[in-house]
Amino acid sequence: MKLVFLGPPGAGKGTQAAVVSKEYRIPHLSTGDMLRSEVAAGSQLGASIADDMQSGKLIGDETISSVVAHRIALPDAAAGFLLDGYPRTVGQADFLESLLGSAKLDLAIELVVDPTILIERIQRRAATALAAGGAVRADDNIESLRKRLSIYQTQTAPLTEHYQRKGLLFRLNGDAPVSDLSHEIIRRLALLRAW
């Protein structure tokens, strides 16, 4: 099963992706996690993207697409995968489609959430990390979130129409309780597998 999760920052993509990954035993490939790992490791790629990530800018199509192409070529993704944070532009979606060839994408799951709720979630996530003695993500601040939401509306939101035209879009109200969302996603995927 090959899936993508769509939705603005803080929509709950990572939370739901973890549920689906466990249920279907496919790797959850978070581009944000991959890029943050590169920054933390001090790699050449990490050094080149650190400032852009902290300020909430999107990483260039060519850079992120090469990271994704390398990752989905690994053996654990052969039976399927779940992409979280990619594609973020129609150009990236086209690249993914050409990369997959005949092994087409099965579904694009979009979590739709009101921006005021997203701000509350990001503030809670940062506060929870601090309270637990952990590190707060560099992009978990209001200024960065507002920039990321603006970029999302102009560059990523068009993916809704892109995947809708292809008959691959499954939209959900991301304001719903986490367990309700998980249930709806698993139910839809079960129907998909039954075809």
Rank of each mutant, 00 (worst) to 15 (best):
M1I: 05
K2V: 06
L3K: 07
G7S: 05
P8D: 05
A11M: 07
A11R: 07
A11S: 15
G12I: 03
G14H: 10
T15A: 05
Q16A: 05
Y24G: 01
P27A: 07
L29V: 15
R36G: 02
R36V: 02
E38R: 09
A41M: 09
S43Q: 11
L45S: 02
A47N: 14
S48Y: 03
S48R: 08
A50K: 12
E62K: 11
T63E: 15
I64S: 13
V67M: 10
V68Y: 13
R71K: 15
D76Q: 08
D84C: 14
D84Y: 15
D84A: 13
G85Q: 14
V90C: 10
G91W: 04
A93V: 07
A93G: 10
D94C: 02
F95D: 12
L96P: 05
L99P: 01
L99C: 05
A103N: 13
L105F: 04
D106G: 07
L107T: 12
I122P: 01
Q123D: 00
A126H: 09
A127M: 00
A132I: 00
G133C: 06
V136P: 02
R137G: 01
A138F: 02
N141C: 01
I142C: 08
E143A: 12
K147S: 13
I151R: 03
Y152V: 02
T154W: 07
A157P: 00
P158F: 07
T160K: 07
H162T: 05
Q164K: 11
Q164S: 08
R165M: 08
L168R: 04
L168A: 02
L172C: 06
G174V: 14
P177Q: 10
V178S: 02
S179E: 12
S182H: 10
H183D: 14
I185Q: 09
I186C: 11
I186G: 08
R187K: 14
L189W: 11
A190H: 11
A194D: 15
A194K: 15
